[in-house]
Structures are given as structure tokens and as C-alpha cells.
């Protein structure tokens, strides 16, 4: 299995100070507590970003857009990750680069 890596992906996504995927310590509380169950796994999505695996991020349309943005995970995250805003940032990236909405 191969992956096309974009080493600048995390920086490209860092539109504001609120984006902090790198604060995730991969503990899995978010996935365990998520009302949507295994449909959304923030820690996996953030790992793709940190590893620059842009194609994997873009292939995760349904998990990214299945997030309720309800912040249940964020309320219980021991690392203070801005999970909802991080997911919204991934949505913005997909909306622009995959769906072509909001470009120019």
C-alpha cells in the first residue's frame, strides 16, 4: 500500500490558532465517546493530517461529514484538542479541493 505525502498539509490547514491536530496524543477517548460510533474517528483523521497523507484525508469524505460537531469528544478530551474546529477545517479543505466550492 502506498500513500502520496504532502509534508506541508498540516501547515496549509492551519488557518487559525484554533487548528491544533498536533495536540492529539492518540488516546482514543474521542472515538470511544462519539455518538456516531466508529463512523467518525478524529484521531485517525488528525494522524493523516500530521503525516501529510492528503489523499487519505480526501478519501474520508463520509467520516469527515458524519461528524455532528456536537463537541462531546472535545468536552472530554484530556489534551484540549479543538476537535470540532479541526474537523471543520478538514471539511473546508475537502469543500474547496474536492467539491470545488468557494474557490474564486
Amino acid at each position: 500500500m502506498t500513500a502520496l505525502v504532502n509534508p506541508g498539509l498540516a501547515e496549509e490547514l492551519e488557518r487559525s490558532d484554533e487548528f491544533n491536530a498536533d495536540a492529539c496524543m492518540n488516546c482514543g477517548v474521542c472515538s470511544a465517546i462519539c455518538p456516531m460510533g466508529v463512523d467518525v474517528q478524529p484521531r485517525k483523521l488528525f494522524r493523516y493530517v500530521l503525516l501529510g497523507m492528503e489523499d487519505r484525508v480526501k478519501a474520508e469524505v463520509e467520516p469527515v461529514f458524519s461528524c455532528l460537531l456536537c463537541k462531546m469528544c472535545e468536552e472530554n478530551c484530556p489534551s484540549g484538542v479543538h476537535i470540532a474546529e479541526n474537523v471543520r477545517t478538514l471539511r473546508h479543505h475537502i469543500v474547496r479541493t474536492v467539491f470545488g466550492i468557494g474557490r474564486g
Partner: peptide
């Protein structure tokens, strides 16, 4: 639009 990430719109 905000929730869906359509930030420019």
C-alpha cells in the same frame, strides 16, 4: 454553511 466548511460562502 459554517458547519459544512463552506467558509467563503
Amino acid at each position: 454553511a459554517y458547519d459544512l466548511g463552506a467558509d467563503e460562502v
